[in-house]
Design a protein around this nucleic acid. Structure first.
Length: 212
DNA sequence: AGCATGATACGCT
DNA sequence: GCGTATCATGCTT
């Protein structure tokens, strides 16, 4: 398998999301190597996407989303979880793809050691924080270049996923723009996470015009 | 259906 | 500076 290139990922997050389905995230650590095939992603944009961490401009937390494509944006949420994103677009224009779920394809033992709570192989990376868990991703991985063979975390191109087997729906856990269908997953994968709507249920407001 | 658990960002003083 | 509402979640009941 070959490394993905920066140019492939320097596109609109919605397009980058579809490209990332079927790709493989590979992480090395002193403990060993784990590979996860990506089966579920969500696109996040910038100033025009109220659900994006970049909606209100650049901060120390989200600065890697403003940097070059193909880098890893790792953030900490809910006091105990990390989530991983692949930066898309190019310098200065923020955008990223949240990697929501995947199938462990190699390093199964290490993955299970990192997530003893998982009762089945399908559950090892079924969710964004579970996925960072099996890959051993932490705060210090924020900003690593996934297209650099020397990086501890890399992105490998996979076999193209037939468009017919790609499903589309609203993003999980977001309260605003809850009807914007920027979640993509591979139909039939047992590792796709469950949908749940974001916090402010009952409050329905029109999504801003997100179509370009 | 509820809780754990902490960083972030915004609105005030 | 400081208080607090909110959170791109996971696990247990």
């Amino acid at each position: 398998m070959r490394l993905m290139t920066r140019a492939e990922l320097a596109v609109d997050p919605v397009d980058a999301a579809k490209i990332l389905l079927g790709a493989t995230l590979e992480s090395d650590s002193p403990e060993g190597r784990v590979q996860v095939r990506i089966v579920e992603v969500e696109a996040y944009r910038g100033a025009d996407d109220p659900a994006s961490h970049c909606y209100r401009g650049q901060t120390p937390r989200n600065e890697v989303m403003f940097g070059p494509a193909g880098h890893l944006y790792v953030y900490f949420v809910y006091g105990m979880h990390f989530c991983a994103n692949v930066v898309s677009l190019t310098d200065g224009v923020p955008g990223a793809v949240l990697v929501r779920a995947g199938e462990v394809v190699s390093g199964h033992d290490l993955a299970h050691r990192r997530r003893p709570a998982s009762r089945s192989a399908d559950d090892l990376a079924r969710g964004p924080a579970k996925l960072t868990g099996v890959l051993g991703l932490h705060r210090h991985h924020n900003g690593v270049d996934l297209t650099d063979p020397a990086s501890p975390v890399r992105l490998l191109a996979g076999d193209p996923v037939p468009p017919k087997s790609v499903r589309v729906g609203p993003r999980v856990g977001v309260a605003v723009a809850a009807d914007t269908p920027w979640r993509f997953w591979i139909d039939g994968s047992p590792a796709v996470s469950a949908y749940r709507r974001g916090g402010k249920r009952g409050i329905v407001r029109d999504a801003p015009n997100l179509t370009r």
